[in-house]
Design a protein around this nucleic acid. Structure first.
Lengths: 218, 218
DNA sequence: AACCGCTTGTGAACGCAGGAACAAAGTCGC
DNA sequence: GCGACTTTGTTCCTGCGTTCACAAGCGGTT
């Protein structure tokens, strides 16, 4: 009914998540209100951009005063859908998968892993973050039982596509992929790619470029 | 002479790293040449965009034929500066830090960790990926001895800023930060932020938005 | 009650990235 | 040797994201 959410740009959504984290920290510290300049500084963005981001939620500040921390926090949380905890499944319990399963940041941000899966028999049965690692055979069953709509892939690259196929077949609608391969999935499934080494390579390139200035470099 | 490298957009650099990974895989598979369409498909991007990205390197393909895999691979590697291995230090050997230290993708992409550091005495001395975890006191010494210019932070959020300060003081020029806080650093130091939970939140928002929208017109 | 300073919210301009279409060039076949 | 096909490299254009700058609104003060 209410078209209060025409569309929020993806870049804005990513920053809203950052603002939310900062606001939670401020609220825990006892702060009751905050200005856009201070919030922008803490989030590492431009104050004007922050205000424009928040404008997508409708007016939520008081002119001359600033933003009420608790109110803004709850409002962003509601828009991002963090109010209700979302069930996720995680496939690939290697080093990275273990780190993700143990990472407290997910739980406090509206995500809970309802299933940890690995194809290696040696890992099945281990307890990670209070949960047992399950065999891949139980994937469909767990996804159906928990209504998980989000899947996280932390497997080696060569099995990521089969895992993706199994996740989509099981009914997962959104996939976060840490394996360094481009996944193919049906159009109705969102796939988001995170490549840790790409970030490092971009960083190295920027540093190299600035270090060598503009010289061509023989 | 020719300003063959005026400036390469950051988004292009990120994709070049992806192309490089695909090309290495093709070369290992014995492929000798590849077309832009096939390469774009494997990388998950638009063919025209791929050609535009490669155009920043100057002409490196043959019209009517395609790109020579080995040549293009080496050319991208040289532009990204992957030819020579870059020394990096990693601070914070928790779950995520261990995953990063063990991740083979870094070593094969021109990065090597020359020092693993942690403040917890219980972790110091452990062997991770063939290297010992060192105490923070040895940070300056190792950075100076190895000429490491890249630092990776995988610590809890509350100590990330002090660690950042120590890294910059030790001479590190580029920092990749996995801790969920915005870091403050001198202007001559590049800081790149990676927040795993933000990616998950964006994914959840997109899924939620698609699940509930589109009903406006119906 | 009115003024003043501070902060939000919004409108406009700039720059950048992405996509599609077209021209150039090289190879293969006849 | 010539023509046609394939694929690259480039150019234009559309849309988005970001930034700057200003008007609107509220609280505090006199």
């Amino acid at each position: 009914m209410s078209p209060s959410r025409p569309r929020i740009p993806e870049a804005t959504v990513a920053r809203l998540a950052v603002y939310l984290r900062v606001l939670v920290g401020l609220a825990d510290g006892g702060r009751s209100n905050v200005s856009s300049g201070e919030l922008a500084s803490a989030a590492g963005v431009n104050p004007a951009g922050l205000r424009k981001d928040l404008s997508h939620l409708g007016p939520c500040g008081v002119r001359g005063v600033g933003y009420e921390v608790a109110t803004l926090r709850d409002r962003i949380a509601r828009v991002l859908g963090v109010e209700r905890s979302r069930p996720c499944v995680l496939v690939g319990i290697g080093n990275l998968g273990t780190a993700l399963a143990d990472y407290a940041g997910f739980g406090s941000r509206g995500f809970r892993f309802v299933g940890l899966f690995d194809a290696a028999p040696a890992r099945v049965g281990q307890q990670i973050g209070g949960q047992p690692v399950r065999p891949m055979e139980e994937l469909d069953e767990v996804v159906a039982a928990t209504a998980a709509t989000i899947g996280v892939i932390a497997t080696p690259a060569d099995v990521a596509q089969p895992v993706c196929d199994r996740l989509t077949a099981a009914g997962v609608r959104s996939i976060l992929n840490f394996a360094p391969v481009a996944l193919t999935a049906p159009a109705e499934v969102d796939v988001r790619q995170v490549d840790l080494s790409v970030e490092l390579q971009v960083l190295a390139f920027l540093g190299q470029q600035r270090g060598t200035t503009v010289e061509v470099g023989a």
